[in-house]
Every structure is written in structure tokens, then in C-alpha cells.
Amino acid sequence: MAIKGLRETVKKALDKHNNDKSLLVDILQDVQATIGYLPKAALVETGKQLGVPISRVYSVATFFKAFSLTKRGRHLINVCMGTACHVRGAVKVLEQIEQELKIKRGGTTRDLKFTLETVNCVGACALGPMVIIGEDYHGEMTPEGIISVLKQYN
């Protein structure tokens, strides 16, 4: 992303949160929502505009699992690995996705379509195994079912 667009993206996020230094996490979330991930330049720019040391921005950005410093796909797949989903076959679902997309957990497909990650419980245990793609929740997933679900995204 061009530096000019980056500067505006960060500024917009800062304006939304009144340049409040204590809302660094919210600001980074907004920046990530716009760009898709948090490139080094975005972190440096956020620190500079907000007046927070870069070391702190880096510390916060690397602490939370929700932030990614590497490029992510357009759709983020979160496979629930919580106890309930696990006993209902989440591992098989995850393996099926890994096979289908030819990536391992934490990886991103080469065409930047999907990023595969795991979470530990999303609080919908009755519907396990859960697979969350972007904002959509897919419950009672099976290795067979996930293939057609993945086809819905482009």
C-alpha cells in the first residue's frame, strides 16, 4: 500500500478514537481491518501519529493473537479446537481444510484467498465442530461438509 493511503488509514483510525493512547488496541484493530494485516510501516506510522513509542506498538501488536504482522488471506478461517469441538471431530475437519487448501495451520494460501488459524472455544459448543470463516459461523462441520462451504467463498 502506498504510504499516502497508509497515512490516511491510520489518521482515520486515530480520529475515530480521539487520539486516545490507551485505545491503541482498538486503533490497531481498525488499521488491520482496513489493510488486512499490520505491516511494519503501519505500526511505525501509528506510533508516530499517536505519540506512542514504536517498541510499545510492536509489543502490543505481537501480544494479541488477533493481530497479524504478516499478510493474511481475504477470508480468515478459524477452526475451533476447544474441548467440545475436539471430541466432535474438529481435528478431522482441520486436516481436511489443510489438505484442501494445501496449507498448514497459521498459513495463508498462495492466492491470498484463505488464512487458516485455530482458536480455543468460541462459546458455541453445542454446535461443534465450529468453523468461522470471516464473519460467518458454520456449525456441526464435517470433513465432507467443509468442502462445499469453502466453495462458497471467492
Binding site: L43, P53, I54, S55, V57, S59, T62
Partner: peptide, 27 residues
């Protein structure tokens, strides 16, 4: 008052480092 170094990552990966793990901290 310069904040050149900080702790980064979490859990077993937590470490003291410069921003982005570079061998150079501008601050």
C-alpha cells in the same frame, strides 16, 4: 524516556527485543 526496547510476543515465545526484532533500534 526513549522506550527503545520492549517485551514482545506472548507465552513461551515472549522475549525482550527491539521493535521488529531488528539489530537496530532507532530510539
Amino acid at each position: 524516556g526513549v522506550s527503545a526496547i520492549s517485551l514482545a510476543n506472548r507465552g513461551v515465545d515472549r522475549e525482550l527485543t527491539t521493535p521488529f526484532g531488528d539489530d537496530f533500534s532507532e530510539a
